[in-house]
Computed example of a mutant assay.
Amino acid sequence: MSVGAGIALFVIGAILAFAVNLPNEFVDLTTIGYIMMGAGVVVFLIGVVLLVRRRQTDTVTRTEGAGAAHVTRSTTRSSNDDLV
């Protein structure tokens, strides 16, 4: 979801920065467009990082018996071939 939001922010910012030319004394739409494009890039990169981190799962199982404890750790990582 954040990847799409980042792309949308970037596109809207590019439209404001390069395509809209309205005379306005209060707000500079070009600057707002550049700010939105920068925010879109940041949101896109955060989304990609979170997407990569989500593909790793750690599971810890702890079983306690009469006198000893048994701990099992399992790590599952998916490869990039699963993305297709």
Rank of each mutant, 00 (worst) to 15 (best):
I32Y: 07
I7N: 04
L16R: 07
S78A: 02
T30Y: 08
L83C: 00
E64G: 10
S78E: 07
L16S: 08
S78C: 01
V3R: 11
A17V: 05
A68T: 13
L16Y: 10
A14P: 04
T63M: 09
V3C: 08
H70L: 14
A14V: 09
G13V: 03
L9G: 05
V52A: 15
G13E: 00
L83W: 04
G6M: 03
V49H: 02
V48N: 12
S78K: 05
L22C: 01
Q56F: 15
F18G: 06
A14L: 08
L83Y: 08
E25W: 03
N21D: 12
V48M: 14
T72A: 13
V3N: 07
R73K: 10
L29M: 06
V84F: 15
A39V: 06
T59H: 11
P23C: 00
D28P: 06
T30F: 10
R53E: 10
S79I: 09
L29G: 01
V84A: 13
T75E: 03
H70W: 13
G4P: 03
M37K: 01
T76L: 06
T31G: 07
V71S: 11
G38E: 11
T31C: 00
G6H: 02
V60Y: 10
R73P: 04
V20S: 09
R62W: 00
V71A: 09
R62S: 02
